[in-house]
Design a protein around this nucleic acid. Structure first.
Lengths: 210, 210, 210, 210
DNA sequence: AATGAATGAGTGTTCATTCAT
DNA sequence: CATGAATGAACACTCATTCAT
């Protein structure tokens, strides 16, 4: 019938191409509703080819999480390690960096998928909790601790404050991708972020010593 | 063997019982991985019986969302409508009320499921966005607006501030249920909430300087 | 298209019907080459129905072995337990009984399948070795032992002699079913059995004491 | 790492090497469960290479049967043709020769595979029936005929007696390979064979009485 | 000759839904 | 109303075979 698709040979590029295709399909239909055939079709290969690179659907998901989240965390940690400015500027830096990431719906889809599937795949949940959430919280808690030590911030629990720092950005990202298709009055992420930083830094400032 | 459940005519209670059973199962396995048989078994009926009350698995899900979220919102709105106190106390009231809700993993599961399945069921997403998220945001934005008008709060965008108000509570709830099984160093929700309110109200307070 | 097959309801009869169908299909194509759909079609049910009664293809095979071999062994053991005659007559009885069984190609197919699949399913091999081969050998070894004790037979190792007793009958049965389709000069099983018994009993007779 | 196999031109040895590898794999997993990749791996070549020598999996199987059984039959027939001794000694010679063959599990595997797959491949069955079984039976039947003619044996149907001669050896071999992995009380093949010959020759001896 | 990436038909198993009782 | 046996479409995964290199 149709001319058979040419058998291109792309050993090195294939894994990444497959992850791309998988992410797009997971985004559109969720993990469970995605068929291997969907991924294959989007990647322009046959079903069997996937299994040359990943042993199972779950393995694709895991590789996806690893490949999409860890590099961003690495980059952020590296940037912070060399950062000379104030704690407030450190938080601004992280916020801006995070905002860049969360502006990409493809990336936001990954934590959303993890959230949805954590119950079914505890191992994945554990990985995400430790390697992503844990590292992110530690990063920000560290900045806040330094700010407190330097007298730049009031005394607060850095762990809790780190969660308060992340929450609006993360949740906005989740909502964004969840309701994007139907949103009538979208909120500008930058406006939200800017208010968030303004309020948070203001509330972290030391008492106006009388 | 075991004393059989009394053969009471339970026609009226059935739908609610089925929703209960469905929620528990969805919580444990997610929507896709839940089998009608699981729900039936947990509800103590046969598979076929479910279809006497709900025409499909999706219909159960929709009924679940409606039944579990709307009453809580109703209650909150009612409490606020008659509330005489300051805007800050209004926010405290909402926060406390919300915390009560989010302390129940069964209830938190519903938004989480919506988040996960919104892509597959746009109609459900629309309903949730308007009837739950929309009403909740409007409620809090209203309080903040009144606070601003009364000079109790600084001038901020009430819509945005409402999102900042909700974010930590909602996200904490999501994380709680997601990582509950593997969490090693859980955070006390009350400590987080109390810090959140403290910081938020402090940052909303008008400038000190006269 | 076609009028859908009536949904007959045959809870009690189904398992046996399925085993029948499975045996016929295994006979024709072997275990591996038999598709669940083949079995279903032959049994006149849909593929899914099989799984209401047996959890897997292997389970069907196991049930088949149990259902077809054990009753025959039971019957044979029972007949022998009450048998009053000489050891030689005992052997004749067993041989006749065994010949009846091996005359049914459907029954012979079962050990043949076991032989073929034992490598893949060690548990099945173990069951067959102990419950079928073991019991059969013990039965005949017992007769021979009694014959020796009574002076009716010469001193031979009863275990070995039991194997010699079974070999021609079993192997003939295997060959029969294997080459039935192409055999040009078939051997009458009864002639073979009769010569076998004649020779074996003659050789077991005590020395013509000189 | 390991010193790579020397890059000798091995064109001529390849087919035999592949058959070796195939036999080993068929033995371990059966015909259906053996993957071309398994054979290739064991032969130290790539999957594609197999197809340079054999057009299909079935072709390998057929070549296997031919290559492993015929030479042994040839050898046996040659030895017998030149054999000067008595008929009894002829049978002893065949038995010993056969025992040598059946002591090699690799060789026994071939008839076992044929037994298992005959139903699926009638052509193979026909070949085996004529070229292996037929020739073997004829060989022994000839010895027995000569023994009868010489007055060394009683009058029996040589065809049937030949089957009785083979049965214990063949069946023991089949059992051996089938239950080797799980056998708890193995029988010494030599003991079985020696009893078999003793009994068979005794029973073939002419009546004592003059 | 040899490779091994790629293919795609094939199969065991699951499960939402139906319907005879 | 309620049951649960039956259905059949769907899907993850396998593997004999092909073919570009």
């Amino acid at each position: 019938m149709a001319t058979p698709r040419p058998r291109t040979r792309r050993k090195e590029a294939r894994p990444a191409e497959l992850l791309e295709a998988a992410l797009d399909t997971f985004r559109a239909k969720g993990f469970a509703a995605t068929r291997m055939e969907d991924i294959a079709a989007r990647a322009g290969v046959s079903k069997g080819t996937i299994y040359l690179y990943y042993p199972s659907k779950l393995a694709i998901f895991e590789a996806l999480v690893r490949a999409n989240l860890l590099p961003n965390l690495d980059r952020m940690e590296a940037a912070l390690a060399a950062f000379p400015g104030s704690a407030a500027d450190g938080l601004r830096l992280v916020a801006r960096s995070l905002a860049e990431v969360t502006a990409q719906p493809r990336l936001v889809a990954v934590p959303k998928l993890v959230l949805a599937e954590a119950g079914n795949f505890p191992e994945l949940a554990r990985f995400y909790r430790h390697e992503v959430v844990g590292r992110g919280l530690a990063l920000v808690a560290g900045i806040i601790s330094r700010g407190i030590a330097a007298g730049e911030f009031r005394e607060v629990d850095p762990e809790l404050a780190a969660r308060l720092f992340f929450a609006p950005v993360i949740l906005a990202a989740l909502w964004q991708t969840t309701f994007a298709a139907i949103e009538e009055s979208p909120v500008a992420p930058s406006a939200l972020l800017s208010l968030h930083l303004d309020l948070l830094l203001r509330s972290l400032a030391p008492e106006q010593a009388g």
